[in-house]
Simulated assay, not measured.
Amino acid sequence: MIKHIVLWELADKDQADANAAKMKEQLEALVGQAPGLLSAQVGRGFVGCDVALIAELESREALEAYQNFEPHVVIKNWIGTIAKSRTVCDFEC
């Protein structure tokens, strides 16, 4: 199993709550759509980062497929327009 963790700092702090809610809705909706994506939890940070994603995937191959899954690419591209920074950590467990 792979854990995929992403932390974002959002650029517009006035829109952070609304953007975090939209990120949560869109990313969590990929469960059941993206092959190999077992779970996804998105939360609004109150210390450190603004938004965090913790996703579980079946394998490294599933992670690679998820990264290229068209609905996920669309979401990533939108997040890229609202995020100031992004940190990722992937590991096997």
Rank of each mutant, 00 (worst) to 15 (best):
Q41Y: 11
A55R: 02
I54S: 10
A65M: 02
A40I: 04
A52Q: 07
S39C: 00
R44Q: 13
Q67T: 05
G48L: 11
G48V: 07
G48K: 10
A52M: 10
G48D: 07
E61H: 09
L37I: 00
Y66C: 01
Q67P: 06
A62L: 04
E58F: 06
Q67E: 09
P35D: 01
V42A: 11
E64K: 15
G36L: 02
V42M: 06
A34V: 03
G45F: 06
A40R: 04
L57Q: 10
P35C: 00
L63Q: 14
V51M: 07
Q41V: 14
L63M: 14
A62S: 14
V51P: 07
A65R: 08
L38C: 12
E61K: 10
A52D: 02
E56Y: 09
Y66D: 01
P35F: 01
G48S: 08
R44S: 04
L37Y: 04
L63N: 09
Y66V: 00
L38M: 15
R44L: 13
C49F: 15
A65G: 08
P35N: 04
E58Q: 13
Q41R: 15
C49D: 13
G45T: 03
R60L: 13
V47P: 08
E58L: 08
I54D: 09
G43V: 11
V42I: 03
A40T: 06
L57K: 03
Q67C: 09
L38R: 13
V42S: 09
E61G: 11
G45H: 05
I54P: 01
I54G: 01
V42R: 07
L38S: 12
E58M: 03
L38P: 06
E61A: 14
L57D: 00
A65V: 01
E58T: 07
Q33P: 06
Q41E: 15
A62H: 11
G43Q: 10
L57V: 01
G45E: 03
Q41K: 14
L38H: 13
G36I: 01
C49V: 14
E56I: 01
G43T: 11
L53R: 12
L37R: 00
G36A: 03
L53N: 08
A34G: 01
E58N: 08
Y66H: 03
V42L: 04
Y66N: 03
Q41L: 09
R60Q: 14
A52S: 14
V51S: 07
V51Y: 05
L57R: 02
G45L: 04
G45Y: 09
V47C: 13
D50V: 09
V47R: 15
R60T: 06
G48H: 09
A40Y: 06
F46D: 11
V42W: 08
G45K: 05
A65W: 00
S39V: 00
E56S: 14
S59N: 00
Y66Q: 00
L53I: 05
E64G: 12
L63K: 06
L63G: 07
Q41S: 13
A34D: 08
V51H: 12
